[in-house]
Design a protein around this nucleic acid. Structure first.
Lengths: 108, 108
DNA sequence: GCCTTACGTAAGGAGTCGCTTACAATGGAG
DNA sequence: CTCCATTGTAAGCGACTCCTTACGTAAGGC
């Protein structure tokens, strides 16, 4: 998950993910959408692949990239802690612990 | 969202978030959990606050931090694109576009 | 074989990040 | 007012990031 988080922290990589989200695309096709150099995009693709967020498929001389949604599952799990129910559950747990500590300090 | 993503990409900051998730905690209380220096933790807290992921409340000389779940909303929206329904919808849209392009190229 | 197309890899440089130590600021206790 | 506790801020340093240009590699077309 570490790698995935660092990967999506970079704006160009996020744009790449959005590009390949709905549609498999070749490296060149992707690079054409950017002002940065083609090797720079290639490096970003390597990072995304290393993070498990995209998969690569070779076809002749081309390399086709697409989103690998399994790679996002750990992120989902981690982040769900911080919104909605996950946070609620944590708060309740913390309050219980708080009560226990108070009782230990000044026992009835 | 940019700031939030960069903020959570750092392991120590993630640990801080987990610490303050269930329970409001003071800066010192947080720093005590880390091997890095107290100023380093303070800097991380500044980053998290700047990203809107934690809120700060002053009480006497102490500063109490807690998770601000609204700060995670944009992340949720962005990431939902890449798992489950969001990705499905994008794929269908891409296929339609693909079909349209084929028709344009070789009209019936 | 030779050329072209499509792409990754290597090397190096500017900028950013996260850490440390030293110092400043603010609030409460006496 | 002085002292202590709690915290942020400043300055500087090594490590990492992202970019560029130059070069290497592999699959076709002819």
């Amino acid at each position: 998950m570490e790698n995935a988080l660092r990967a999506i922290a970079e704006p160009n990589r996020r744009r790449i993910l959005e590009l390949v989200a709905g549609q498999e695309r070749s490296a060149g096709e992707i690079a054409a959408q950017f002002s940065i150099s083609r090797p720079a995009v290639s490096q970003h693709l390597t990072v995304l692949k290393g993070a498990g967020l995209v998969s690569e498929r070779r076809e002749g001389t081309k390399r086709l990239y697409s989103v690998r949604s399994e790679g996002f599952e750990d992120l989902r799990a981690f982040l769900e802690t911080f919104w909605g129910d996950g946070l609620e559950r944590l708060k309740i747990a913390a309050e219980h612990e708080e009560g226990r500590r108070r009782r230990d300090r000044r026992p009835a």
